[in-house]
């Protein structure tokens, strides 16, 4: 699709004024967006790095006076044992699990939707939309309520089924805490994948599948040998976007009982950065954590950027 439109408009328009306008015009069109990106993204990006090299407290933030300490914040972060045992595993492990969960479930649902009749497809996709529409904050409170230790419906149900003797507080244990976060994030995230993959699936020519079926390929083979390659781009996009979203999950952890810092075993990079900066007034330290989070994400996504651009320019 890209090849067809990259035809240069300017070549076809002989008049000189047009040509000149065409060199200036893209920049005029880009100017507002670039200005916004420069002021609100690039400069803050530089600044967060500058802050991270300082002992930046409340005093510095109000007066704006620098207080350089070199890489001390980074040294301290890297020397924090919890970074390696708690924070990074929580951030990284959770992102991997939730991306996998979201993409697998979303794809499965897309395949299921594609095989349904119009009525059930409408019903199901409306339900999916409802899940998608639930804001993260709302969703988090709903899950917290469902899993509430004393009065939540989950414990109630388990106890009346005889699976549980006494109420359990699921929020105090690191694994069950993140299991709930995972449920929350997948519930909120899989609809995007499902809708996107479904749209892609509907574009796969059926003849290819029928041909494969005649060759005796099973449905799994058909899925992996025909659909997956056809939807390579689609998967690249949903995986990368899910990765971005799941790495920086904040509200879904922060708003859970114990998630705002009192339960240290559930800290992730985002929450850690927030509680250190806005709770402890250590904006420099918090910034250094933020820089690490950014770098981590950039490294993970750099590969994708290169693939997409490489295809683009071909």
């Amino acid at each position: 699709m890209t090849q067809q439109v990259t035809t240069q408009l300017t070549e076809k328009l002989p008049r000189l004024s047009r040509a000149r306008a065409a060199t200036v015009r893209p920049w005029l069109l880009l100017a507002p967006a670039l200005a916004v990106l420069a002021v609100l993204l690039l400069w803050p990006l530089v600044r967060v790095f500058l802050f991270s090299l300082q002992d930046y407290g409340l005093r510095e933030i109000t007066t704006g006076e620098p207080n350089w300490i070199g890489v001390e914040n980074y040294a301290q972060i890297l020397a924090t044992p919890e970074l390696w045992t708690v924070v990074l595993p929580n951030t990284f492990g959770f992102a991997v699990l939730s991306v996998a969960g979201t993409v697998v479930l979303g794809t499965g649902v897309a395949v299921l939707l594609a095989s349904l009749g119009t009525f059930w497809r409408t019903v199901t996709s409306s339900a999916i939309m409802a899940a998608w529409a639930m804001p993260a904050v709302t969703g988090t409170y709903v899950w917290v309520w469902i899993f509430d230790a004393d009065r939540g419906v989950f414990n109630d149900a388990l106890m009346s089924l005889g699976l549980l003797d006494d109420p359990t507080n699921w929020f105090t244990n690191r694994w069950t805490f993140y299991a709930i976060v995972l449920l929350n994030v997948i519930h909120h995230g899989f609809p995007f994948v499902a809708v996107t993959v479904l749209a892609g699936l509907l574009g796969v020519p059926k003849e290819m599948l029928e041909a494969a079926e005649m060759d005796g390929a099973g449905s799994f083979r058909r899925f992996f040998s025909i659909i997956v390659p056809q939807l390579r781009q689609v998967f690249a996009v949903v995986i990368i976007l899910s990765t971005i979203w799941d790495f920086k999950v904040f509200a879904q952890v922060f708003l859970m009982p114990g998630g705002a810092g009192s339960n240290r075993s559930v800290l992730n990079l985002g929450v850690w950065s927030y509680v250190e900066s806005f709770g402890q007034n250590r904006y420099g330290f918090g910034s250094a954590i933020a820089v690490l989070l950014t770098l981590l994400l950039l490294v993970v996504t750099a590969v994708y950027v290169r693939t997409v651009l490489a295809e683009e320019e071909r």
């Binding site: 109420p167 359990t168 507080n169 339960n263």
Partner: peptide, 8 residues
């Protein structure tokens, strides 16, 4: 004597 929920 307390409750599980009280933990948080």
């Amino acid at each position: 004597y307390s409750s599980e929920g009280a933990t948080t």
